[in-house]
Design a protein around this nucleic acid. Structure first.
Length: 746
DNA sequence: GCGCTATTAGCT
DNA sequence: GCTAATAGCGCT
């Protein structure tokens, strides 16, 4: 008999193979493919005539399909909607162990584990023991943050420690190497805090009643929970999950990024203990596979994870919760399939008859629009728990500050006198402050005073950022770095100006203003280690940090009662980006970071430095006015029309030869316009135009937008373009990328 | 004419 | 995505 097999290759079709018996859809098989062997999934019997070249399934890898019928349907929907090959979707949905052709046998029954045996409490002891072995220290500290143990293979392969480093720790008597049976949860050793006692507020109780009332019911519309920061959304999630578990079902909780939300994860663990599986990016392939199997067997019924956890094989799915549903990290924008976990969650909940709950203080306009249209059911938590007020927000007008600075012939200070006074006040009261600036490095660009030329990356059309710590200028797109320029590359002048403030410069300004303060900086540059987020946040939690400064990663999910001041060094960073979501992003970030202040009994205050105090995104944030912001922003997006009023697809062509890229995108545009005319479908072609960043890694980038009132015609046009358009799918130069519902047009 | 490198068709 | 076939190009 003949079966259709989906393979993890970028070819948008399935392949026909012969099999000597009937194979259930979802069964993993090994098949010959060219000169190679690949692992694929049977998706069903083959209809029609056998192909001219027919090979047979070489090996059936499992008797019970690893992909359930439900998951297969979900992946099929993703493949169709996001125009990705089904096999690539399946590979994304499953742990790497199951798709790696080198590992066709089940993983062994035991594995080598390195476990800490002695605690080094004092810093002096640590310094002494590891004075000549920094790698051993790093390894020790990684183990510490992993809960005391990790698989040896993980430490050597993924974390990059040499086997001698592991042995060194054993010889020093601080760790042991042992063979352990599989299926251990590395997070089990992490102490969970006891659950906090609580009484739901009236609003929480009402939301819960609606949610639990919907369990197992027929109305499949998702819920949108809008709750101001500090209103107790997590409590609602927890109580919903409790009800789900009581019905004998399981649930998935999606968070934007596990490393940034340790407190949320810890609350789930404290309530549900060992039935929680945390799918973390630091898991080794083996640990991830173990967790996946434990979920599939029903041993763990609550799954917490980032985007890809939406595929967790929970057998009887009762609910999917998506926290901070507006976050753009839910969209996979840089690889196929370019899916949005929010849409996938909604579709999956529909297929499983599960409750889908989207939560946010600042819902995406798409979701807000859907709630207004009755497609989502709206729940609201309008007040903070225990009647705590939202913090008052003050604005410092940078235009006025700039005028003063110019008059006094001094540079504009990074921190205004108002902000300095407020931080000083917190230091005296032994409270904590958070300072946000969403730009890393020291100076964001280097400009020649003589001719005005800005130093650009050789491979990308972006300015290079000066990193003072590294003494380099760095391209944030291709990571190329060079020594900082001393002369202008254009005119040779040595009069260079290092401009644009980044977090490193804020750190320096803070150091100058408050030499005694204990400061921590948190951005991509200080959190390169897998557990460094964790380490910095632990220090904040223990009160060892007076001022935490950093990029947007300090804006999410932190809940520290001693944080009573939030300062935004420059609120306008995202506002000038050539992206229709610039205002929305600015409003969301400001609201989110403002929510970090005053979560405890001490109260709090927010100070925002901006040159655009009159902009609606900023004054809506000042007033904590989501509804006002959303109404205004929805109006702004009517003309020209942008989501949520219309659906978009971004059609991007990249290549090393600019002329070929331009020629290609023009042919694509002509083809699409002709096709739109023929089909009579209301799809509009906007462009082509160079992408806002028109060269990255020596590849030129041109794009066009497809705009349509409805998703259906837009999807059909994209599919036709892929099938019959002038650029062959899979070609590498120029290469065509189709991104539906894009979150960024850069 | 040979051998190295860049490009690309085709994979069941 | 990968590989094998092929086209392109410098060198003897």
């Amino acid at each position: 008999m003949l079966v259709e097999v989906a393979l993890p290759v970028p070819v948008p079709r399935t392949f026909t193979y012969s099999a000597d018996r009937e194979l259930e859809p979802g069964t993993r098989v090994r098949v010959p493919f060219g000169s190679r062997r690949l692992i694929g999934w049977v998706v069903g019997p083959s209809a029609g005539a056998p192909p001219p070249k027919l090979a047979g399934v070489e090996r059936v890898l499992e008797e019970v399909p690893s992909v359930s019928a439900e998951l297969l349907r979900l992946c099929g929907w993703i493949a169709d909607y996001y125009l990705a090959p089904l096999g690539q979707v399946l590979r994304t949905a499953l742990p790497a162990r199951l798709t790696d052709p080198r590992r066709t046998s089940p993983p062994g029954l035991s594995r080598r584990v390195l476990r800490l045996t002695r605690e080094l409490a004092s810093l002096q002891e640590r310094d002494a023991l590891f004075s000549r072995s920094p790698r051993q220290r790093e390894c020790y500290e990684l183990l510490e943050s992993l809960g005391g143990e990790s698989e040896a293979a993980h430490l050597t392969r993924q974390a990059g420690f040499a086997p001698t480093v592991l042995r060194g720790l054993v010889e020093k008597g601080v760790a042991e190497l042992r063979d352990e049976p599989v299926s251990r949860d590395p997070f089990a050793a992490l102490a969970a805090e006891p659950p906090q006692p609580h009484t739901p507020t009236a609003a929480q109780a009402a939301a819960l009643a609606a949610l639990t009332g919907a369990l197992g019911g027929g109305d499949r519309r998702p819920f949108l929970l809008r709750g101001v920061t500090g209103s107790g959304k997590t409590l609602v999630y927890i109580e919903l999950l409790r009800a789900v578990l009581a019905r004998g079902e399981g649930a998935i909780v999606l968070v934007p990024e596990i490393a940034l939300t340790p407190q949320t994860v810890s609350r789930f663990r404290s309530h549900f203990g060992p039935t929680v599986a945390v799918l973390h990016s630091a898991l080794s392939d083996g640990e991830r596979y173990d967790a996946w199997r434990a979920v599939q067997r029903g041993e763990r019924r609550v799954v917490i994870g980032a985007r890809s956890a939406v595929f967790a094989p929970v057998p009887r799915l009762g609910a999917i919760v998506l926290d901070e549903e507006h976050e753009s990290t839910y969209k996979q924008y840089d690889a196929e399939p370019r899916y949005h976990a929010r849409e996938v969650a909604i579709v999956r909940a529909g297929l499983s008859n599960a409750v889908c709950l989207l939560g946010s203080a600042t819902p995406s306009l798409e979701s807000w629009h859907n709630a207004a249209a009755g497609k989502f059911r709206l729940l609201e938590l309008p007040e903070r728990v225990e009647g705590r007020a939202l913090p008052p927000v003050r604005v410092v007008d940078l235009r006025a500050a700039r005028a003063v600075a110019e008059e006094e012939r001094k540079p504009l200070p990074v921190l205004s006198p108002e902000l300095v006074a407020a931080v000083q006040d917190r230091l005296e009261r032994r409270e904590q402050s958070i300072l946000l600036l969403n730009r890393r490095g020291y100076s964001t660009f280097v400009q020649c005073r003589a001719c005005g030329t800005v130093r650009q990356c050789e491979r990308c059309n972006v300015s290079m950022t000066f990193h003072r710590g590294r003494r380099r200028v760095v391209c944030h797109y291709c990571f190329r770095e060079e020594p900082p320029p001393v002369t202008c590359g254009e005119c040779g002048s040595a009069d260079l100006s290092f401009r644009g403030v980044g977090t490193e410069q804020v750190e320096r300004a803070v150091g100058d203003a408050f030499p005694e303060a204990r400061v921590a900086r948190m951005d991509v540059d200080t959190t390169s280690g897998k557990w460094s987020h964790h380490r910095i946040l632990e220090r904040v939690a223990r009160g060892e940090v007076d001022i935490l400064l950093g990029t947007q990663m300090i804006a999410k999910g932190l809940d520290y009662p001693r944080v009573t001041l939030v300062g935004v060094v420059n609120a306008d960073v995202a506002m000038h980006l050539p992206d229709f979501r610039a205002s929305e992003r600015t409003f969301q970030l400001l609201t989110q970071v403002a929510g970090r202040a005053g979560r405890g009994a001490l109260g709090g205050e927010v100070i925002i430095q901006t040159a655009l105090p009159g902009h609606y995104a900023i004054h809506s944030a000042l007033a904590h006015d989501y509804i006002g912001f959303a109404a205004r922003e929805l109006e702004e997006r009517r003309e020209p029309a942008y989501p949520p009023h219309v659906r978009l697809a971004n059609v991007l062509l990249t290549g090393t030869d600019q002329d070929a890229v331009i020629d290609g995108i023009e042919r694509v545009a002509d083809w699409l316009r002709a096709a739109a005319g023929r089909a009579g479908d209301p799809v509009e072609v906007v462009g082509p135009a160079p992408a806002p960043i028109d060269r990255i890694r020596e590849r030129w980038r041109w794009h066009l937008l497809l705009r349509s009132a409805a998703a259906g015609p837009l999807g059909r046009m994209c599919a036709a373009l892929q099938r019959e358009g002038p650029v062959r799918p899979g070609a590498r130069d120029p290469r065509l990328v189709i991104d539906r519902d894009p979150v960024t047009l850069l």
